[in-house]
C-alpha cells in the first residue's frame, strides 16, 4: 500500500494553486488528504502532480456574512466542531463535523476536501444539501457559485471541473427557534454511515410544524434533500415522522449494495429520518 509516483507542488496561495493547475494535465488538489491519501496508498487515485493547498491561509476560516456562515474550504473539521461562532450560529454543522472519523482525521480533514470528495455517506455533504449551502468554485478563468443540490452529482462525482477549486461554502443561518437533528447508523464509531439523516424543524406557537427540512445520506449515490412541504401544519410525533419517513424513502431511487440490499437501505434510512426528526422536534420545542 504505497502510492504510485507523483510530483508535488506546494502552493503559496490559491492563485498559485490555480495557475499551476491550469498548466497541468493530470493534477489533483491536496488539502487535508484524509480521503485522498488512502486512495493514493491503494493506488485507486494516481495523479501525476499533487498541488498542496495547506499553505493557502486565505482559504481557511469562518466569517459571518449576509444570511449565513461563509466557511473557507481549508477550514478543518475540528475547527467546525469547536469554533464558538459555528457552534452558536450553526450547531447542526458543528455536530456533524464532530462526528467525522476520529480526532486525528478531524484535525487534518477540511470542508472543501469533504465536499469535493463527495462521499454519499459523508456528513458535510449531507448538511450542505439539507441547508442549501452555496459552494464557491474558482479556476484560473473565473469564479462561480453553485447550490449543494446541483453540486453533488453522483458518488465521488461533483459539478466541479478538474481545474476548479472549491474555495468556500456558505451555509444559510438556521431560522431562530429552529430545532435540528442528525442521526447516523454506523457499524462502528467513526465509520461512514450505513444510513444517515439530518432534519430541521420550526414550530409555531401552538406546536405545529411551520417549516421542515430533511435530507438523507449514504443510501443513494449522493445526499438527497426530501420534499417536506407536506409536514406543514402537522404536529410532531412518532406516527407523523414514521409515515413521512416511509413515504419519503419510497420515493427515492435506492439500489442494492454489497452486504445491504435496497429494502434494508430504505428501512434504515427511514429509521434515521425518524431519529433526526425526533431530535429536531425536541430541540425546536425547547427553542420555542
Amino acid at each position: 500500500m504505497k502510492p504510485a509516483p507523483f510530483a508535488y507542488h506546494r502552493a503559496a496561495d490559491a492563485t498559485d494553486a490555480l495557475a499551476v493547475m491550469a498548466g497541468a494535465s493530470d493534477a489533483a488538489f491536496l488539502s487535508g488528504g484524509q480521503s485522498l491519501a488512502p486512495m493514493l496508498n491503494l493506488r485507486m487515485a494516481r495523479p501525476a502532480l499533487l498541488i498542496d493547498l495547506n499553505d493557502c491561509a486565505e482559504l481557511s476560516g469562518v466569517t459571518l456574512g449576509d444570511g449565513g456562515l461563509r466557511i473557507g474550504a481549508l477550514t478543518r473539521h475540528h475547527h467546525l466542531a469547536t469554533d464558538a461562532t459555528v457552534r452558536s450560529r450553526h450547531p447542526l454543522l458543528a455536530e456533524a463535523a464532530a462526528t467525522i472519523g476520529s480526532d486525528a482525521i478531524r484535525r487534518r480533514g477540511t470542508l472543501g476536501g469533504s465536499l469535493a470528495h463527495a462521499d454519499p455517506a459523508a456528513q458535510l455533504p449531507l448538511i450542505a444539501t439539507l441547508c442549501g449551502a452555496v459552494i464557491a468554485l474558482q479556476s484560473a478563468r473565473g469564479a462561480r457559485m453553485i447550490e449543494a443540490d446541483d453540486f453533488f452529482v453522483s458518488a465521488l462525482e461533483t459539478a466541479r471541473e478538474p481545474n476548479e477549486l472549491v474555495v468556500a461554502a456558505t451555509f444559510p443561518d438556521l431560522a431562530p427557534a429552529t430545532g435540528w437533528g442528525l442521526a447516523q447508523l454506523c457499524k462502528v464509531a467513526g465509520d461512514f454511515a450505513v444510513a444517515s439523516a439530518a432534519a430541521t424543524l420550526a414550530l409555531d406557537g401552538a406546536g405545529a410544524i411551520v417549516d421542515a427540512r430533511l435530507a438523507v445520506g449514504a443510501v443513494c449515490d449522493r445526499p438527497m434533500a426530501l420534499d417536506a412541504a407536506g409536514l406543514r401544519g402537522a404536529r410532531p410525533g412518532p406516527d407523523v415522522f414514521e409515515d413521512f419517513a416511509m413515504a419519503a424513502v419510497g420515493a427515492l431511487d435506492i439500489a442494492d449494495a454489497p452486504g445491504i440490499d435496497a429494502d434494508d437501505r430504505r428501512d434504515l434510512a427511514a429509521a434515521m429520518i425518524v431519529e433526526a426528526m425526533t431530535r429536531a422536534a425536541a430541540r425546536a420545542g425547547r427553542a420555542a
Binding site: M1, K2, A37, N41, D52, S102, I105, R108
Partner: peptide, 29 residues
C-alpha cells in the same frame, strides 16, 4: 493499516494529532 483507521502511526503536527500514514513527508517542511 496505511488507511488512517487504526491510529497506530499517530503523531503530533504542530501539537495536533495526525495520521502519519496519510501525510507525505514532503508536506512537513
Amino acid at each position: 493499516c496505511e488507511n488512517g483507521v487504526c491510529g497506530a502511526c499517530t503523531v503530533l503536527i504542530d501539537g495536533a494529532p495526525a495520521r502519519a500514514c496519510l501525510i507525505f513527508a514532503v508536506q512537513m517542511q
